[in-house]
Nucleic acid binder design. Structure first.
Length: 344
DNA sequence: AACACGGGGCT
DNA sequence: AGCCCAGTGTT
């Protein structure tokens, strides 16, 4: 424990946000909140947490649900493997742990989608186990406090920061300590505009001492964004049926639904065939640029009117109005909301 | 060790 | 446009 650490506790008790998962001890709720909050801001995750605890009030109900229902509830939150793993882990709890949530760090680690961070969070919050969380906030706070320049996304950095975080962990109240460190990072020790003037540990911060806060944390690697050209085809027949497909295999949006798609290396002005079938009268309906973290999608939505929907393997015909019953990528949601073909 | 995996908000 | 977010799993 570092000297004057009580300053962080005092600040936390005065300034902490009132978040619903902070007022519960049930590991199921804490685990659920932690999965939702992975790589996700509180403001974005909060409504999903409320939806999930209402729809699935306990691990048993979540385990009994259809994966597709879980994905539908998760729609819009991104990183959909979290939803698949969430569902898988709930089943694990029922089968491997007799329906009782695992109560220690090592057992928690065996759950799908639970890594070192989440295992530390749940074990410390729910059970008071002395494990330090090391998330983006903690990396930033510690790197500035101690002026540690080891890249936080390197194996060496991850080890180093984990050791340090556990050294300064207040073993008498690990849950509160972890919450306080993260809250300080989220509200004060922010990435671009740290509020050092109101920081409770300004006086012991090595980076603040020489005004190098913005040099920390150090990160290596640059993100390379891949540009893709997608051409979605809306096959619309006389009965207002369309074709959709479930995205299988690994890749983006696994388990979600979208339309038949032709990917091209460059932007195209027409679509003449789909899976070996020649198409005539294909009209451009909408063109959008969709930005993801690691992909820039240049997307064209084309419409093809047909008497009957083609019977193509792997695709299913549904009434156009039923599209919203399926879990969809935000890109498709965007199209459904903007295209006149989906207006009732 | 490097990479894939969403979506939204802030600068 | 670039960066970041209560990270994890796969290769």
């Amino acid at each position: 424990m570092i000297d004057k650490q009580y300053l962080i506790f005092d600040w936390y008790s005065e300034n902490k946000r009132n978040l619903p998962w902070r007022s519960v001890k049930d590991p199921y709720y804490i685990w659920l909140s932690e999965i939702i909050l992975q790589q996700t801001k509180v403001d974005q995750g909060l409504p999903y947490y409320l939806k999930f605890i209402k729809c699935y009030p306990n691990v048993k109900s979540l385990a009994a649900a259809d994966l597709e229902s879980v994905l539908k509830l998760w729609q819009g939150l991104g990183y959909y493997s979290r939803a698949r793993n969430l569902h898988s882990a709930a089943k694990q709890v029922m089968t491997d742990f007799g329906g009782v949530f695992p109560d220690n760090y090592d057992s928690l680690l065996s759950l799908k989608g639970v890594g070192e961070y989440t295992a530390a969070a749940v074990s410390s919050f729910a059970y008071g186990e002395a494990k330090a969380v090391v998330d983006g906030n903690v990396f930033r706070v510690l790197s500035r406090l101690f002026k540690i320049a080891t890249p936080i996304n390197s194996t060496k950095g991850k080890k180093e920061f984990t050791i340090l975080a556990n050294e300064i962990l207040d073993k008498s109240q690990p849950g509160e300590h972890n919450q306080a460190m993260m809250e300080l990072g989220a509200l004060v020790c922010k990435p671009k505009s740290p509020q050092c003037e109101i920081c409770p540990v300004q006086g012991i911060c090595l980076a603040f001492a020489d005004k190098t806060q913005l040099d920390y944390p150090v990160k290596e690697k640059k993100l390379k964004v891949k540009v893709r050209h997608l051409n979605y085809l809306l096959f619309l027949d006389q009965n207002n049926n369309i074709l959709i497909r479930k995205r299988e295999g690994q890749g983006i949006w696994e388990g979600l639904y979208d339309f038949p798609c032709v990917e091209t290396s460059e932007s195209v002005d027409e679509v003449k065939e789909f899976e070996g079938v020649t198409l005539k009268n294909v009209f451009l309906d909408l063109e959008v640029k969709h930005i993801l973290t690691h992909q820039k999608l240049m997307v064209k939505f084309w419409v093809h009117h047909k008497k009957d929907t083609p019977k193509t393997n792997g695709y299913m015909a549904i009434p156009i109005g039923d599209i919203s019953n399926f879990p969809l990528p935000q890109l498709i949601v965007r199209y459904v909301n903007e295209s006149s073909f989906f207006k009732r």
